[in-house]
Simulated assay, not measured.
Amino acid sequence: MKLSILIPLYNKEKYIERCFKSLLDQGLSNNEYEIIIVDDGSKDSGAAIVDEYAEKHSNIQLIRQQNQGPSVARNKCLAAANGDYVYFLDADDYLATNVLRLIIALAVENDLEILEFDTKQIAESAALDFDSLTQNPQDLPVLVMDGISYVAEYGFRNEAWRYIVKRSLLVDAGVRFIEGTLYEDAIFTASLFITAHRMAKVDIDVHRYIVVENSIVTSKDRAHNLKFIHGMVNAIEHFHGLIKDLDSSHVDYNKVVKSLRGRQQAFVFALLIRTLKYRLLSFKDLKKILSRLNTYEAYPIDPKIGGIGEGNTRRFYNNFFVPIFNNKTCLFLGMVLMRAVPS
């Protein structure tokens, strides 16, 4: 079995069939790959749709569980996987046609532990786009490097659907999704990348990321946003641990530390923006969080490290927002003003 595609499912009946259609149009035989879905206690008919596909396709497996969150579902998917490589995909996304065969071939030919590829962001209302834009992908260079060098060269994005990973690397390194928190993708990806010995990125148009209204990312719900706040704090803490454990003798050590610290500060910045925008915390609670972030060397924000915005946006954020965020008196006044503005 070459590849296991692992999908957590929760109330995605509107999208799961589209996802399946793209996965079954990859030019692979059933014995080359499997699709494992863990239904996380969905309240819609998504699991019933999966059942219908599983009856027709021997390489589709459905596992049911009570609602425990996407991390638990992903870990359960992984425990059931048999593929040499695994790919974590979201149920509301899909893939371009006939791209997985090439991705698998490149990973095997180059003995890669991780292979990253390109994604395209599409609005939920936009027309379906199954055609890959990549021309002559077999001619694309594959530059293999260890994970620390890779992060120094390319940085990293949080999402686990940007790459396939050798299952043995996950098993040997003991990397899993942390359960009961948000931003688990960021922790998972960073932990995995700096552990790898052979990884690469290829400019192949593979994945379609669908921007879904009222998803957990775009939701304005107060409870969800509080989970985001605590998830960011948890991620910042884990990144602090990764930095402490990083091999200081590596030639790219300083670059990777800066990259990880930059990601920490991006989380701090996003945490403060979300706190102000949605009036989420009391100033007393925020002070406790900021004190905790200070012990992780993530606060105050250091503009020299980077990680907040790009180009002119970065300059604006660093010149306007960062001085306010780094001054607790100004931050408190900002919270008072935001509470006075009608939501």
Score class of each variant (00 low, 15 high):
A73S: 12
K258W: 02
Y296G: 11
G155P: 00
L169F: 03
F188C: 00
P303I: 04
F188H: 01
C77F: 05
G307K: 00
D39I: 00
D39C: 04
L102F: 15
D40H: 04
K21R: 11
G41R: 00
K14S: 10
R314A: 08
R314E: 09
V202W: 04
N294R: 11
S219A: 02
R74K: 14
H224E: 11
L331H: 07
Q66G: 15
Q121S: 05
K244R: 12
Y299V: 05
I308Q: 01
Q66W: 15
M338T: 14
A79T: 15
G180A: 13
L9N: 06
V256R: 02
N82C: 09
I122W: 07
D252S: 14
L281E: 08
E52Q: 10
M232W: 04
S132F: 03
G41V: 00
Q135W: 08
H207N: 07
A126F: 01
K284Y: 13
R261H: 00
N326Y: 05
P300Y: 12
I301Q: 04
G41A: 01
A186Y: 04
S343Y: 08
D221H: 00
V212H: 01
F239Q: 01
N319E: 15
K14T: 11
F188I: 00
L286P: 05
G147P: 14
E153C: 14
M199G: 10
D25V: 06
L286I: 07
S343H: 09
I187M: 01
R279K: 03
S168P: 06
I7M: 07
D245N: 08
T181C: 11
G69Q: 12
Q138E: 14
L62D: 03
K43E: 13
N326C: 11
G311N: 01
K328H: 15
L89S: 03
T313I: 01
E17I: 10
D252W: 12
I204D: 07
A160L: 07
Y209I: 06
L286K: 08
I301H: 04
L78I: 11
A173I: 12
M338Q: 13
A152I: 02
S219T: 07
Y183F: 11
